[in-house]
Design a protein around this nucleic acid. Sequence first.
DNA 1: GGGCACA
DNA 2: TGTGCCCAACGCAAA
DNA 3: TTTGCG
Length: 285
Amino acid sequence: MNLQLTNLDKPFWPEGITKGDLLAYYQAMASALLPLLCQRPLVLKRYPDGIEGEYFYQKQAPPHTPPDFPRVHWHGIDYLYVKTVEHLLWIINTGAIEIHAWPSRVPRLDQPDILLFDLDPAPGVPFSQVCQAALLVKAALEKLGLVGFVKTSGSRGLHIFVPIQPGPASGQLRRALALLCQTLVQVWPTGLTTEFSKSKRQGKVYLDYLQNTTGKSTAWVYSVRPLPGAPLSWPVSWDEVEAGNLNPQQFTLHNYLQYIPQARQLWGDFFQQARSAAGLLALLS
DNA sequence: GGGCACA
DNA sequence: TGTGCCCAACGCAAA
DNA sequence: TTTGCG
């Protein structure tokens, strides 16, 4: 594939971070990111003029995509996916700041290999409450024989990714997750909610299980967020979550180099920890 | 970000 | 040679 | 049936 990077000096953040800086970040992270991203249909969220410019979503492969770029047809749309660092950088060059990927891989697009939990605090909710919520999710997963990996969302919350052995259909997993989340809300009704309407989330952490729908996507691990300060969605340890001395925006495009070794260690064996989702599905019966 | 139709 | 336009869309629950 | 929500 002929990779041509363009407009490297274009400011993508008002604070001076350029498109070239963004590309350099993803190049540096490629070896950690690619194993987790390969073969996953992508939803591009493109900011051709940086975070303060207009953005748009794009699923259908753009017409000018190189002919040999990997793509997969699904429900009438040709989704792009990546296999190599060149593919990744081509995607970033289109103005994709965040990475949005499916929790399933080619060719088993309706059989997720990852379950997602999105823990999003209502305005004013302290981050320590998000950490407590995450620990509840972790404990519940362990009872079901599953292993959760936690990361900052890069915004205000935490994400938990759970590797599973593919097989069960996404719809069935989603229904089981809905039950699990509702059970967790019963365990801590004052701290957690699955309510859609924002007005009913006051003071609580929103536990969003609807991210697990086919065709849905969440900011992927190692994503840059199009926010001031260029925060990252970055792996953290459960010990840090327990200690509660974590800032969800402490990892940024400015300081990530020092955190790379720990991140590799934390998420390096992600797929080795994949377990059967049978215990989770048993909640449905 | 870039191709396209148009003016 | 310049300008505008396009680029996603599913499921759930409350109203 | 539409609307808010992500």
